[in-house]
Design a binder for these strands. Structure first.
Lengths: 194, 194
DNA sequence: CCTTATTTCGAACATATGTTCAACTTAAAC
DNA sequence: GTTTAAGTTGAACATATGTTCGAAATAAGG
């Protein structure tokens, strides 16, 4: 049921998705969604919440691993934040739906409270790491660079089609992720001198 | 009428927006939208199309100015692409609504044909300029970096609230735009060595 | 001033959609 | 086996929404 909701919300967005689309996808009867109380909005929040903790844990574990391996430069820290999302997406395609969902949540102020609750705490941990690696930059400047980086990450997860159209179509996911990490690391490092 | 539609679509998205919301905002009667034919979807496309040409022209003019001034390095070219959007937004707040709209169009594959028609041609001009400035990178890598940059630009236009929450709230728009341009220039330049 | 054409308007329509709830099924308790 | 409780199901409801269309208002022509 949550899988079906995740898939439909990811493709159509919250307003575009229909309770009937979701139950048709899941095969379950119409009433089930409201039987647990809360209706459509509660279902959406459950779907967002379901994988949020696992994602945060994967990111923090990757950060700990990177630090233990002495790989705590900017690409190492950024990679710890970004790579788990792609690793999970490759193992389980439902994580790719979740990625689109996170893009929706990040883009719409209506869900600001959701992203503040589920994503901001981990973001602050990484923000602190990055701050230590870019000593000259202001707090504000680090936050801006982090938001730029997150949006680039979500663009890579959601805009494969446009990248293919503008490029030559020779996409290699591992190379794309390396590119993303180094792109953002270079961008953040450029904040040092400013 | 188009102003009202622009504002409502920008806040609620296509599915969230209602014909009745739009006509209430505009003060005009309910029938006007369908009288010109096409209904809601045609209205959305008109709203996207209305400012697309002006935006492209402003970007290409800024590129020509930068080249004439000998300012055709990566920050100069990227600035020519990005700064007109912010300049227009500061002069006319309706351009800020348009910016949110462009973010919606960019994020949803449903409107891929729209962005291909109105934004891709200009994008290719800048892509060619960037390619000449990052000689070592592949076509694909340039396209990826460009999409990262565009998404960062749209994030700056649409995610002021999250930037403020994660940072210290001391936002200065001119400094943010400079940061954006240098962030993306550094990220693109990092593609040279790869 | 009357007639005809054109535009403007919003009530009405058909459909879609979130939600409810009474009938039905299944399981548990005694 | 009977009764009671709990869970399941989808038809029905109220509302919302995109669209239509005939009437009213306005303009044009003679």
């Amino acid at each position: 049921m949550l899988d079906a909701a995740e898939a439909v919300f990811a493709i159509r967005g919250f307003d575009g998705a229909t309770i009937r689309d979701i139950v048709a996808e899941s095969g379950e009867p119409l009433g089930t969604i409201h039987h647990h109380g809360g209706g459509k909005e509660a279902l959406f929040q459950q779907v967002v919440a379901r994988r949020a903790e696992a994602l945060s844990e994967a990111r923090l574990a990757a950060l700990a691993r990177a630090q233990a391996a002495g790989d705590s430069d900017l690409p190492g820290v950024l990679g710890a934040f970004m790579r788990p999302f792609f690793d999970l997406s490759q193992k389980d395609p439902r994580w790719r739906h979740y990625a689109r969902l996170v893009a929706f949540v990040s883009a719409d102020d209506r869900w600001r409270a959701l992203s503040a609750r589920f994503f901001d705490p981990t973001a602050r941990v990484f923000l602190a790491e990055i701050r230590a690696l870019v000593p000259g930059a202001t707090e504000q400047s680090i936050a801006e660079g982090f938001v730029f980086s997150v949006s680039a990450m979500l663009a890579l997860l959601t805009s494969q089609e446009r990248i293919g159209t503008l490029g030559d179509g020779r996409a290699n996911e591992a190379a794309q992720i390396d590119h993303l990490v180094h792109f953002c690391a270079a961008g953040l490092a450029a904040g040092k001198a400013r």
